[in-house]
Write a protein that binds this DNA or RNA. Sequence first.
RNA 1: GCCUCCGUGGCGGAAUCGGCAGACGCGCACGGCUUAGGACCGUGUGGGGAAACUCGUGCAGGUUCAAAUCCUGCCGGAGGCACCA
Length: 981
Amino acid sequence: MRYNPKAIEAKWQKRWLETKTYEPKLKSAKKPVRQAHAKPFYNLMMFPYPSAEGLHVGNVYAFTGSDIYGRFQRMRGNDVFEPIGLDGFGIHSENYALKIGKHPAKQAKVSEKNFYRQLSQIGNGFAWREHLETYDPDYYKWTQWIFVQMFKKGLAYRKKAKVNWCPSCLTVLADEQVIQGRCERCETEVVKRDLEQWFFKITDYAERLLENLKTIDWSPKVKIAQAAWIGKSEGAELEFPVVTSDKRQETSIKVFTTRPDTLFGATYMVLAPEHPLIENLKLKIKNWEEVEDYIKKSAKKSEIERTAETKEKTGVELEGVKAVNPANQEEIPVFIADYVLASYGTGAIMAVPAHDQRDFAFAQKFNLSVWRVIRKKEAPIKSYLMGAKDVSDKELATLGISIIKKTSDGDRKIIVPKTKLSEYENLVSKKMTPGFWNEYIGEEAVFIFKHKDGSLERLTLTPETEKRIDKLAADFVGEGWSKSSVWKWLAENDWYADLIIHTDPGFLENSGKFDGLESEEAKWEITKFVGGEKKTQYRLRDWLISRQRYWGPPIPLVFCENCADKVRNQESRLRRSFGGQAGIRNIFNKGELENPGWIAVPEKDLPVKLPFVKNFRPTGTGQSPLASVKSFYETKCPKCGKTARRETDVSDTFLDSAWYYLRYPSIGMKNSKIKIKNDNGKYKIVEIPWSSEVTKKWLPVEMYIGGAEHSVLHLLYSRFLTMVFHDWGLLDFGEPFTTFRAHGLVIKDGAKMSKSKGNIVNPDDYIKAYGADALRLYLMFMGPFQDGGDFRDSGIAGLTRFLNRVWKFFSEKSKVKNQKLKIQAESQNLERILHRTVKKVTADIESLRYNTAISSLMMLLNEFEAAPDAVSLEGQKIFLKLLAPFAPHMTEELWSHLKEKGSIHKSAWPVFDPRLIREETFELVVQVNGKMRGKILLPQGVSQADAEKAAKTDPRLRSMLGGIATRKVIFVPGRLINFVI
RNA sequence: GCCUCCGUGGCGGAAUCGGCAGACGCGCACGGCUUAGGACCGUGUGGGGAAACUCGUGCAGGUUCAAAUCCUGCCGGAGGCACCA
């Protein structure tokens, strides 16, 4: 009988479904015991979005890797729950529908069928009963319910802001969906638009999102990405008084800085063009027209335009206005420039050009003073060259000096004639004289000065001196300096900021009484000195949740003019009669009070169904297609009954996927009703979207495997919502996924797969040609699961060959009924290899090193084939069990050939016997001076003396070791012996 | 620019703790079986050398009896962040 994957796979897929092999008893599973082997094991993989023609091979890769882990845990005796569903709502599915000219609702049905067909063929142990689709009203009812709760608790708010707008997808996007200034989905350049939108207050959770990272077992790169995205900075808020030309103080500018230690070096200030203070100072600004013009221009720029030309800074000085440096009372100019972001910190900065790249670039362009206030700690070159802390003018002269003048055709070096040296000495002595600037920048012997006409000159060293330094530099090599790095550091040819300024902390100078203090200490001393305040800033912004598209859950809110008035009036009344808290809070919830006129759709009226609309195309007007559907938006206010208008935007797809893992185990269960505290302090019994009983047993997710591209999207949002639910008392855990592992990327023939390149791998083709088992095996064998791999058609042949050999071996073996062991020695040897393989495969699966697990199974098969008669029935069973997670169909078939009852996938995972692994003898590696010179077979646990003797008497080694005195002998028991002679 | 990860045969990769570099597979070569082979089986396969041996894990150094592995600097690649003060 030949191996026929097609027939076998179809047969077992059908039987597994019939016998519910992969459906754990969700209710009766035992209470989880954390760690090692939790009985109920929630094995989750990221559900796919059915956007393209079918399942991508990248999905198959991820799902196979996740399934192997699940099957392994099942064989270890755990109840494994491995659900799957479709993330079918959202832009990606809608864009696909648009592309092929079909209505998304209709296309969803087609994709659903196709995806589920494909998913049932890849050999995963899915719990099919608990599947879900995000566009199912039974599901999005609860997505909307979550939105309503967020609103009621004041975690959803509406705000007009500059938001990311994708001109191709015709909708706004969250910050997380903008990758390098481009739309995450279509890679179109994102522009800024002023729109009123719904946001979720994820920033309230910034600190916890960051802090909790320490408690979860996730792939480090994902944690790092999240920490960077949250972007915590500790610094200070400092206030700079603003004075006008008549020296009268007008107002003040608040800045946030992480480097208050550089305050004495602040030589100008910059406001973001959107800073509200500019409008207030309008009358005092002498060049208002110019300023206004700049504001308008920068408003039009896209994010990419604003950030692309990093070197070319733009800005306008606010003439007639000066700021006062609170540290030294110097009057400094104030600018507006778009390199300062309105959305971070206070939207204003103090500029310290000597110690910040951007400020330096700006200062160069606008001829502003550069004042160094931080000195580097160590200066090996300088102290070597000069033998002193400061470079003296004389030293300079004796070294010889040349200038590089910047000319139109690049830098040109001119050796300075001796007669001109006095001029330089003059310059050097006029440290920080207005119009001139010279620096011992960092500790480099590089000097730049500025002429009155603004041209820059740089002093460097003559060729003779270069030679001398070269010699000196050679002495430094080995003290943490390579020759090239000494040179790079000393004499790089360009003169841009990266060479001249240094941004590291160090020791203060030119800072009055703070001179000599170390940066870290000086920071807080100076903050105190000027009456500033310690402050923490996060880079994270609130989650923009509304989308101007059709294919998503409508945001379950209603706008009512009448209620808007009520809220506003009540508020002003409350303000007048202080203390009158209670009344209004019983009528309106927090969200309604904070967003006057917006009323939550009552829970009993959910879902707000997405109507079937023929023209579902995005409009581009800043409104969703639903805004033109009268029957949808016309409604009555649920609060007062007057005419009201529904919100016509839908919510972000990532809201759907932020909680799906909570829903799976509760599908088909009764939702729980629990008592929760409302924002007005009263308790209320509410129905929640899951069964608390089942959730307690199965959650949080034990193992989650998915792509790292979701590091700051899905994985961040899920954590946020879980924390929120925890705070509301809906969940008894605050982190959704105990363990998360990011799998690698599959590429094809060394390149990323893309439709335009035509190198897309369609899993259907490969399953048809080779079977799912071979495809699974090949995908996992390509490389370490967490690194991804390069898919090459030629590679799959090797795994097909392997499977054929397994089949052949077991087919022929099963004919031999008499399992009499012919050769004792061989069978002992085999047993040892067998148990070693058990150990290796077990450890490899635990750490997702599937490639090496498969390779050791190949080696075991090689051994089996070399001595087929010595392979016991037990050995055959163990082999099949080890292979079962990788090739579930074939192993199940061969298992049944061995007349085993029940599924191999529910059989017990083999355990190795440590005693059987140990060998009685081992090969001792003999080294001479660290070089391998031979091996000798010795009994396990041999003493050093015996090993030495054996090595010295070994005929092949004798010539090398005989008679020569050894200086030292290193003996590593069980491994090697090294003779140093 | 900053952060993270990674550089090993013709290719994918192995070496999990600093202890035999190149497991396993692909490819290739030769041989067998075959009417035939893009099927199957066997043997070989990092470079140099007839061999003893020697060189060899991106490059240059360092630590060590011993380095692919640790340290320093450079070069190259991938990913993340990107005017975040």
